[in-house]
Amino acid sequence: MDGIPSFTELYRYSDNAYFADNYTKEIDCQGESAMEVYLRVMNSTPDWVNKLMKIRNEVVSRMGLKHLGNLDDFYPKKTADDYQIGDKVGIFEMIYKSHSEVIMEDRDKHLDVKLSFFVEPHGDKALVTASSVVHVKNNFGKVYMFFVGPVHKIIVPATLKKL
């Protein structure tokens, strides 16, 4: 894990982050956009991650946090080109989109979470950089991140591995 790479648009949001992580993975790639890679990752979320999300949703909804659904919940199904800034994409809202990077966000009264996928092509391969930044707004957000932070460091590499 490293800091948020300065070549990403997400870097602009990383000042004073309570939590930040960054993972890279080389994948086979034929010029796919960051959004296409993001959708590929979300649509191949490991079953155990969706089970953890279900448990998370049941527990935190009793405490006043919103029920997020699963990472691979996409209604309606769209192509990568169909998604626009402001669209809901699974559990996140898209706030930035270029061919090489997509940034998704989820905000509530406790946290502001941003997730970036940056794709750097190299011939028939690409280096995918998945980065996350979390800004905590209150003590409840800190408690939540105490439990979620360590799990997040397992989920992201496991999800990228499926690529």
Rank of each mutant, 00 (worst) to 15 (best):
G123N: 15
E120W: 08
V60P: 00
V143H: 05
Y83E: 09
Y83D: 08
H135G: 01
D112H: 10
A126K: 02
V59Y: 10
L127W: 01
D87I: 13
V151W: 04
Y38V: 09
P121N: 10
V119E: 05
S6K: 15
H122R: 13
V128E: 05
V119G: 03
P150A: 14
S98W: 03
F147K: 02
N139M: 13
Y144K: 03
M42K: 04
M35D: 01
I103Q: 00
R62M: 13
K109Q: 08
I27M: 05
V113P: 00
N22R: 13
E58F: 09
F74M: 14
L65A: 12
H122M: 10
G69W: 11
P5D: 08
P5K: 01
M94N: 04
Y144S: 04
L71Y: 02
I85P: 00
E105C: 12
K142H: 11
V156W: 00
Q84G: 02
W48Q: 05
K109R: 10
V59N: 08
A158W: 04
N16Q: 12
N50Q: 06
G149W: 07
N70W: 14
N16M: 06
Y13I: 01
L68T: 12
T159F: 03
V128R: 01
N70F: 11
M145F: 09
N139G: 10
I103G: 00
D15F: 06
G86L: 08
F92N: 01
M35W: 00
H99L: 02
K25F: 03
I55L: 14
R56D: 13
E105Q: 15
L115W: 09
F117L: 15
N139H: 11
Q30Y: 10
Y38I: 05
V89S: 08
E26W: 14
A34F: 10
K77N: 12
A20I: 09
D21C: 10
K77L: 13
H110T: 11
Y13T: 02
H67E: 07
T159M: 15
K88G: 03
L65V: 09
H135V: 12
G90P: 00
D87P: 04
V102K: 00
Y83V: 05
F92C: 06
V156A: 02
V148C: 07
D82W: 03
Y18Q: 11
K54Q: 05
F117G: 02
Y144L: 11
M94D: 07
T8I: 09
Y23M: 07
M104T: 14
E58Y: 11
V128H: 01
I154A: 11
Y96C: 04
G31I: 07
Y83H: 11
A80P: 02
H67S: 13
D21A: 09
C29E: 02
I55T: 10
S33R: 07
V148Y: 05
P121M: 06
